[in-house]
Simulated assay, not measured.
Amino acid sequence: MEKPEEISSSKMFGGYNRRYKHFSPTLGCFMNFSIYFPPSTSSQRIPVLYWLSGLTCTDENFITKSGAQRAASQEGVALVAPDTSPRGINVEGEADSWDFGVGAGFYLNATQEKWKNWRMYDYVVKELPKLLNDSFEQIDTSKASIFGHSMGGHGALTIYLRNLDKYKASSAFAPIVNPMNCPWGQKAFSNYLGEDKLDWEVYDATCLITKFNKFAIPILIDQGEDDKFLKEQLLPHKFEEACKQLDAPLVLRLQPGYDHSYYFIATFIDDHIHHHAHALKSS
């Protein structure tokens, strides 16, 4: 596996935002990802916190808009932000709508031949950690945690619940927690996975929580009460009900007046960084 090529670097809070490009065998195309490296000594190994972004985003949105670097610098945690889908595949219809195709990988492995390159689950869970481990000796991929926003919140929760041995904790901002029962999820799943809903369940956090193995650190979710997608697409009450039935640890915070934007994320991002840093340092 070739080392990724650095394409930009900017100092921030004593550390560095760095952006990289590499060829992904999993996705069959070149991909970009961003890392915030906190200040550290040459002998220090840094735990990693993966951020998964939402619909239409790239690897840059979180790095430029969230303000997460201040707390990450203080806590000594590396932030890794991959892109949200394959790019440059040029599949017919991939850019026909903003909620499917390019920028909308939904962090799953597509089973339909047309969308065979859309394997963001394997990219995030398998390829990217191996690439980081092989390329950056200061990053300790054995100490990892995962969070995200909207579609990325869906990805963070489902990936965590399916890989409790790989991640110390999970959190999300306005996640799509029950995609089987919302228009965004139904559109994505039917196209990527086909019509068999049994194949959908492994990418639905509300379904997965019913099969969960015990985890000690609560899942943290922040949800803006003025989010225009709250009632039709996000459905946090469905996930909350499922967690209560199984006594699964969840902290769901409904935030009055906040919407779906990065203004909302930036307001509460420090809480999430501290949540994950505690989990990473206590492991």
Rank of each mutant, 00 (worst) to 15 (best):
E113D: 11
G153C: 04
V125M: 14
N178S: 13
G194W: 07
I209A: 03
W200R: 00
E137C: 15
I217L: 12
N133Y: 14
T210D: 09
A156T: 08
I219A: 03
S145Q: 09
D122H: 11
N191K: 12
P179A: 05
V202H: 11
C182D: 01
M151P: 03
C207I: 08
M151I: 09
A174R: 01
L161E: 05
D134S: 15
Q186F: 08
Q112K: 14
A169M: 07
S145E: 08
Q186C: 11
K114A: 06
N178G: 11
K168P: 14
I139K: 13
K130N: 15
A156K: 07
K187L: 12
I221C: 03
F147H: 10
K214L: 11
G152R: 02
N181A: 01
I146V: 06
F173H: 03
T141R: 09
L198R: 14
K116A: 11
L131P: 08
G153W: 02
L208N: 02
V202N: 09
F173L: 07
K126F: 15
K187R: 09
V202S: 13
T206D: 02
Q112A: 12
F173K: 00
V202R: 11
N213A: 14
R119L: 11
V125N: 14
Y192W: 02
S150P: 03
K211I: 09
D204H: 03
T141K: 05
D196L: 02
L208Y: 03
I209H: 00
E195C: 13
K114V: 05
S150D: 01
N117L: 07
P175R: 00
Y160S: 10
N133R: 15
F215V: 09
I139N: 10
N163D: 10
D122N: 15
I139P: 06
L108H: 01
P129M: 09
L220Y: 08
S170V: 12
K168L: 14
L161F: 07
I209M: 04
G185C: 02
S150N: 00
L193H: 00
D122G: 15
M180L: 05
V124T: 10
S170E: 10
M151N: 03
L193P: 00
D199P: 11
Y121R: 04
T111F: 03
Y121D: 08
Q112Y: 10
W200K: 01
I139D: 08
L108D: 01
P183I: 02
A216K: 15
Y167I: 07
K130S: 15
E113N: 12
W118D: 02
N178R: 06
D140I: 12
K143S: 10
N133S: 15
K214Y: 10
V177C: 07
K187P: 04
K114C: 07
S170N: 12
N109W: 04
N133T: 15
V202D: 08
L198K: 14
E195H: 12
L208F: 06
Y107D: 02
Y107F: 06
I217T: 13
P218A: 03
A144W: 05
H154P: 05
F147K: 09
S150W: 00
Y160G: 07
V202E: 11
N213Y: 12
S190E: 04
F189C: 06
L164P: 13
P183K: 07
K143C: 08
H154V: 00
Y160I: 07
S171E: 05
Q186A: 09
S171P: 14
D140H: 06
T141D: 10
A156V: 09
T111V: 04
K211N: 12
L108W: 00
K166R: 15
G185F: 01
S190A: 09
R119V: 06
A188G: 05
K143P: 04
